[in-house]
Design a protein around this nucleic acid. Structure first.
Length: 579
DNA sequence: GAGTTTGAAACT
DNA sequence: CAGTTTCAAACTC
């Protein structure tokens, strides 16, 4: 039935049919951006090699992109997603040309050096498999000021040594979560699915086992962000002087922890590796307690421990699989296929699932700027900083239990939800939400017997602080893909559509952050429907194609059955290798 | 720890 | 696309 070995239908790459270059949007962006769009180069597919898929081409529906057979390099130059395209896997030639465009903000120069250096070493590829491959949908803040640090050098070295197809580089220092100079934190990795080319194992192993181990951290940023007790950590990524680098394109588990996992496949190592992640993977606890997320809001921990019995850990039921990590020691799954030794199977299954639902591995929670923005009906403005992307469908739990994905993620329900009798403590669907104080007050009240005080709309606790600012490229180009924040760690893949919240985020952030005379232009760009470039993407009937939008509508955010239209813009590149 | 409930995922 | 089934986590006892 759902055997992972099922042959996947090769579907003609529809991306190539998209003539983005001819689109007004493309031309427009081209005029705005000094960055040359990435041109595709035919890359021969190596049979049997696992390769990293590229981020999605712009303006393709998630579904479309999910079928890109050979997607090492998209044919589609970027329009809105130009920056995203720049994160694509590339050939060295391209890297020479393009890696300088991959960094946003002030870190650009440094990265140029890094890229140059890397290219000059004639590395076959640059490795972007930086640290946060798991929730790479998050915006990463790299300290590019000290790129001559050992970690940086090592990173470059490792990059040049590795033949894994991956993306550009940045100094793998994330502050304040971790200091790469801290030897204790070096080499931290996780059991992310590793789609490295098998033949690279040896090299990779050498690299990773060497002293110069890049601190690769399968870090669920959102987990940190959502850790209500770690606000100081989770939400402080945007440090001055740091550049934000969207890892959008690297989402897939290029993380080089394969070695770690593999050598641990049968032994203690896995556990050791997992233990080493304790720093960043919070909530480690007794294996018996599969989930100790604490209060809701810590959300989907990166530390997945499944207990699958029948799914072979190859379905989304399996949290490990859904999160893009291999099952490891603490898992008590039966007949598990979600292990490095079944890499091919895992990959095939992922691909299959993606073909069915390109957003299957997308982060479930998206961040919304910390202010009141409209996510609900016109009448209900929901103050919230994060929302479940797809929304819940609770019927009996009133969104008050962890059955509810919204509640579990520590976010309020939104218009996306179809829940009944929503009482989500992080924000009801009708727009009310509570502050952390409210929640704690509720706890107190519950224990003390006092009544609940009147609530003031506010932001759900886990996201009170913005995780990252709106990424704007050096030329003020919006990088829509960088708005999203992975909550599930799954995040190995990026969705390729924007939910309404994404767009709310987008538009809102635009207001907040875009400055300069191009603001209006960008605004127009964002709000202008893009016929034929935004395709239907309705894996769960919750996304509406703008293609179907009546052009006579005055607003691109036309309601549709009470829901706003969703602009489908590639945001989560499918990074599943496509053979 | 076993059994039940729940809702997402998968299937038809 | 809607209804049903399967599944595993959450929950209860």
């Amino acid at each position: 039935m759902d055997t992972p070995q099922k042959t996947l239908t090769q579907i003609e790459n529809p991306i190539s049919k998209l003539k983005h270059e001819n689109s007004p949007v493309y031309n427009y962006i081209n005029s705005l951006s000094p960055i040359k769009p990435v041109r595709s180069l035919p890359i021969p597919q190596t049979s049997g090699s696992l390769t990293y898929s590229s981020p999605p081409s712009v303006f393709t529906s998630p579904h479309v992109s999910s079928h890109k057979g050979s997607r090492l390099k998209s044919d589609v130059p970027a329009s809105i997603g130009e920056e995203e395209a720049l994160f694509e896997t590339e050939t060295p030639q391209n890297l020479e040309n393009d890696c300088t465009t991959r960094v946003i903000d002030d870190g650009e120069t440094d990265l140029v050096k890094m890229c140059d250096g890397n290219v000059k070493q004639k590395s076959e590829t640059l490795v972007w498999d930086a640290m946060f491959l798991d929730s790479s949908d998050d915006i990463l803040i790299y300290d590019l000021k000290n790129n001559d640090s050992e970690a940086s050098r090592c990173f470059l070295q490792t990059s040049s040594e590795s033949k894994s197809r991956s993306l550009c580089v940045a100094k793998p220092t994330l502050e304040p979560v971790m200091n790469s100079d801290d030897p204790l934190h070096r080499g931290v990795s996780r059991r992310c699915l590793d789609f490295k080319m098998p033949q690279n194992d040896e090299q990779t192993s050498v690299a990773s086992s060497s002293r110069c181990v890049v601190p690769r951290i399968g870090l669920h940023l959102t987990t940190i962000a959502m850790s209500s007790k770690d606000n100081n950590v989770g939400n402080e990524y945007s440090l001055s002087g740091h550049s934000r680098v969207g890892l959008q394109g690297s989402a897939t588990p290029v993380l080089n922890l394969q070695d770690n996992v593999r050598e641990n496949e049968t032994g203690q190592g896995v556990k050791d590796g997992a233990m080493s992640l304790a720093l960043v993977e919070l909530n480690q606890s007794s294996p018996k307690k599969k989930r100790q997320f604490g209060q809701a809001g810590e959300g989907e921990s990166s530390c997945k421990r499944c207990n699958c019995k029948r799914s072979k850990c190859l379905k989304l039921y399996c949290e490990c699989f859904a999160s893009g990590v291999y099952c490891i020691g603490p898992c008590t799954c039966i007949d598990c296929f979600n292990k490095p030794i079944h890499e091919d199977t895992v990959m095939a299954t992922r691909k299959q699932i993606e073909s069915r639902n390109p957003l299957a591995f997308a982060p479930k929670v998206i961040k919304i700027p910390d202010s009141t923005i409209e996510v609900g009906d016109d009448a209900s403005k929901t103050p919230a900083s994060a929302r479940h992307k797809r929304g819940c469908n609770c019927k009996k739990s009133n969104c008050l239990k962890k059955y509810c994905e919204c509640y579990q993620s520590g976010v309020g329900c939104s218009i996306n939800c179809r829940c009944e009798g929503c009482k989500n403590a992080f924000g009801k669907r009708d727009g009310s939400s509570f502050t952390s104080m409210d929640i704690e007050q509720d706890k107190e009240n519950a224990t003390s017997g006092r009544g609940r005080r009147e609530r003031q709309p506010s932001t759900p606790m886990p996201f009170r602080q913005p995780l990252a600012q709106l990424p704007i490229s050096s030329n003020n180009m919006l990088l829509p893909h960088q708005h999203l924040h992975g909550a599930s760690g799954s995040s190995l893949h990026k969705s390729q559509s924007f939910t309404e919240q994404d767009m709310s985020l987008l538009s809102h952030s635009r207001i907040e952050t875009i400055t300069g005379k191009r603001t209006d232009d960008i605004e127009n760009l964002i709000q202008s429907p893009i016929p034929n470039m935004i395709n239907a993407a309705s894996p769960n009937s919750k996304r509406v194609s703008l293609t179907h939008l009546d052009s006579s509508e005055s607003s691109p955010w036309r309601k549709n059955g009470g829901r706003k239209l969703l602009l489908s813009i590639p945001t989560f590149p499918s990074l599943t290798p496509h053979h």
